[in-house]
Nucleic acid binder design. Structure first.
Length: 421
RNA sequence: GGAGAGGUGUCUGAGUGGUUUAAGGAGCGCGCUUGGAAAGCGCGUGUACGGGCAACUGUACCGGGGGUUCGAAUCCCCCCCUCUCCGCCA
């Protein structure tokens, strides 16, 4: 969330930013609650100081055998006033906190201003569109024919959007996960973690999924848990409510399945593996100082790109504009793979700098050179998401006979297998 | 799931209603002492919010949340976590 002091001192800038985001936020209501809160704090703390003083004198009077009933009655009256303040304070603070939790992050000064995804500039690209001299097949046709997955049986188990991988398709999932984890831990300096796949409400609030996006998640009501939509949630919140004494930056990578209800996307990209409710992903998360977060964000994006380069896949990097950027992010690059049969770009990674937005929600701090606690900056990105990566491999490396060549980098992880046929 | 024991500051560890302004010890920082160090001695050493240009000052915080009371680390209620034993179990 945003610092209430920042909002207080930069109200116009915050309002302008919310307009650029197409976000409906009542900044003035927040400022009014903040003003009332400070009023109450001032008045009730004076009363509390007075009460503390008199209570102490009552203790003394009683010890000396005196009668304190008159003073007690007087303090009781003060106590009633304090209780009234406390009660209003609870309401005002709860209201203020909730409103703050619904305010998205400030876009970075370098984030391009724009309305929709059509306004997202392309930053760079790597490789070239593969020229196929035959009519390419769709991945869902290739996959069923080669026995890589069985979407019908997956749907039988859980409904559409829950893919069942089979045989070498299942092995390819495992191989890609291992390949990416090895790359990030051995060459990019990340420390691997394996996390819970369900998290509680506080954790979901820390990274910004709650309270606003509750309907996007699967829940376990009996235990008050949510299935994670991304490893960002458990990995970022590892250090929630801590003052870190480790050297920054801290780099973590994790494989997890991700669970998304895709409530707002019904009927969109429904075929094959394009948009599913459960998918595998390798995630990268960084905790940095404010001074290095921009540089670390660029490096993390390159770490994700490296995966695609090693697999020889044509991709482009776009930067999300203010109207399209995620709720908690300040700056964000999307990486998109070219899929020749789909004849379109597929998003496989979203690399975001959250600045101190998540750190403030989750309470993740470090000590600066003066030893004062400061909020860290958090950065994360997919490195990368599996289903669309698999689609791109299948569509780009397919042969006229319907077989699929495996990229050299993944062959060692497939027991030396060179081709799916 | 059942029974019991616990959760206090950076750590250790006291504290069952009122100089606790959380003792004592350790650690850390600064200073004194010393040729230098150790030991010793002195001082300091949390977080958040409010007020103040600042020095500073007020309030809250002893796992979390409520309550009782003039006053709560301490008493009551609910919840969370850790440990031990039993049960079940990959």
């Amino acid at each position: 969330m945003l610092d209430i002091k920042f909002i207080r001192e930069n109200a116009d800038a915050v309002k302008a930013a919310m307009v650029n985001r197409n976000a409906d936020v009542d900044v003035d209501a927040v400022l009014a609650l903040d003003a009332r809160r400070r009023e109450i704090v001032g008045e009730s703390e004076v009363l509390k100081a007075e009460r503390n003083k008199i209570s102490k004198s009552i203790g003394k009077i009683i010890q000396e055998g005196g009668d304190a009933e008159a003073i007690k009655a007087q303090v009781r009256e003060m106590g009633d006033k304090i209780s009234a303040f406390d009660e209003e304070m609870r309401e005002v603070e709860a209201d203020l906190r909730l409103k703050l939790l619904y305010i998205p992050n400030m876009p970075s000064a370098t984030t391009p201003v724009g309305q929709t995804e059509d306004d997202n500039p392309v930053i760079r690209s790597w490789g070239e569109k593969k020229e196929l001299d035959f009519e390419p097949q769709m991945h869902w046709d290739l996959g069923e024919k080669l026995g890589l997955f069985d979407l019908e049986r997956g749907a039988k188990l859980s409904g559409s959007g829950f893919p069942l991988f089979t045989g070498r398709g299942a092995k390819l999932e495992r191989a890609l996960i291992q390949f990416m984890l090895d790359l990030h831990t051995e060459e990019h300096g990340y420390v691997e973690v394996a996390t819970p796949f369900m998290c509680n409400e506080q954790t979901m609030t820390g990274t910004g999924q709650l309270p606003k996006f509750a309907e996007d998640m699967y829940t376990v009501p009996l235990d008050g848990l949510y299935l994670i939509p991304t490893a960002e949630v458990p990995v970022t919140n590892m250090y929630a409510n801590e003052i870190l004494d480790k050297e920054l930056p801290i780099l973590h990578t994790a494989y997890t399945p991700c669970f998304r209800r895709e409530a707002g996307s019904a009927g969109k990209d429904t075929r094959g593996l394009l948009r599913v409710h459960q998918f595998d992903k390798v995630e990268m998360v960084k905790f940095t100082t404010p001074e290095t977060s921009e540089e670390e964000h660029e490096k993390l994006t390159l770490d994700a790109e490296k995966v695609l380069q090693k697999l020889g896949l044509h991709y482009r990097v776009i930067e999300l504009c203010t109207g399209d950027i995620g709720f908690s992010a300040s700056k964000c690059y999307d990486i998109e793979l070219w899929a020749p049969a789909q004849d379109k770009w597929l998003e496989v990674s979203s690399c975001s700098n959250f600045k101190d937005y998540q750190a403030r929600r989750a309470g993740i701090r470090y000590r600066d050179e003066n030893g004062k606690p400061q909020f860290v900056h958090t950065i994360n990105g997919s490195g990368v998401a599996l289903p669309r990566l698999v689609i791109a491999i299948m569509e780009n490396y397919q042969n006229p006979d319907g077989s699929i060549d495996l990229p050299a980098a993944i062959q060692p992880y497939m027991g030396g297998l060179k081709k799916l046929d």
